[in-house]
Design a protein around this nucleic acid. Structure first.
Lengths: 141, 141
DNA sequence: ATAAATTAAATTGTGTACAATTTAATTTTA
DNA sequence: TAAAATTAAATTGTACACAATTTAATTTAT
């Protein structure tokens, strides 16, 4: 088997699928004026209320070079607050504004809209999620 | 189930895995001075010798906005040639230089090196590839 | 045959990604 | 406890990604 052929690659379809899925999200997220990475940040904040930049990075596997400008955009949209920790000035804590908190209601329809856009069954999605998460855990260190 | 929780998302682990896998490729591709998207372009050219920008885009799911600057970089590295088609001036044909062709030998060890870096079994990779390709085919239109 | 529509690349502008470095604050250690 | 090491963000620079527009060439439909 020729391992330098595209069809024998495992990484390419994941790279391509990631972009295809983000494209499916695009029109849905346009409604709430968020990009996909911005949506992910909002999602972890809806779940945890307040997180440092580092903690957000650990959850999303992104570094400050990516997060700092992204968080500044969310701040400019009045979705989040960024404030230096009083007890440790190195840390920037990120929290939701009322605006950002209220967006959760509007966002509640996003997962279902996304599922419809994909046209996959619940079983297919669940299987995919579990399969990918297994691989992700094994490879991410 | 709260579908706005990160752990219940199917898209996030794919997005994250794509970046994790690219990070695994990085030190390996540094040896041949290619980025991962550049490596993909070289791979389709090793397989097809000559392709138009549009054909490369169809294979990799990338548009000219992404490909044009990337191809110019490969051209600057003397890996490829870009020339307007004589029969249809709208088309730019991309082909390998001798340099680019010879790189295939050096690149032949990349798939194995990547597999070692991941630490997954052949079976795990094959299963993943088939599973992802099925989903990709269903979602890419 | 020629105006209208389509096509292929390139361009422009915005938004990630990430390596490498810098800055400032806090811990560790000699 | 003061210098050294570490840590958290921010910054800088390079390279995608992609929407939207532009440009030029080719088809098509009248």
């Amino acid at each position: 088997m020729d391992y330098l052929k595209l069809e024998n690659q495992a990484c390419f379809p994941i790279y391509a699928l990631s972009r295809v899925l983000t494209a499916h999200y695009k029109p849905i997220l346009d409604e709430v004026e968020l990009t996909y990475p911005q949506y992910l940040v909002m999602m972890v904040l809806w779940e945890h209320n307040q997180l440092s930049v580092k903690e957000i990075g650990e959850k999303l596997l992104l570094d400050s070079g990516t997060l700092t400008p992204l968080l500044k955009k969310l701040e400019a949209k009045k979705m989040i607050l960024r404030e230096r920790s009083k007890t440790d000035e190195r840390i920037v804590n990120v929290s939701l504004t009322n605006n950002g908190l209220q967006l959760k209601d509007k966002a509640s329809s996003i997962p279902e809209a996304f599922k419809c856009s994909l046209g996959l069954t619940t079983d297919e999605i669940t299987l995919l999620r579990k399969n990918i998460n297994t691989i992700l855990d094994k490879t991410k260190k």
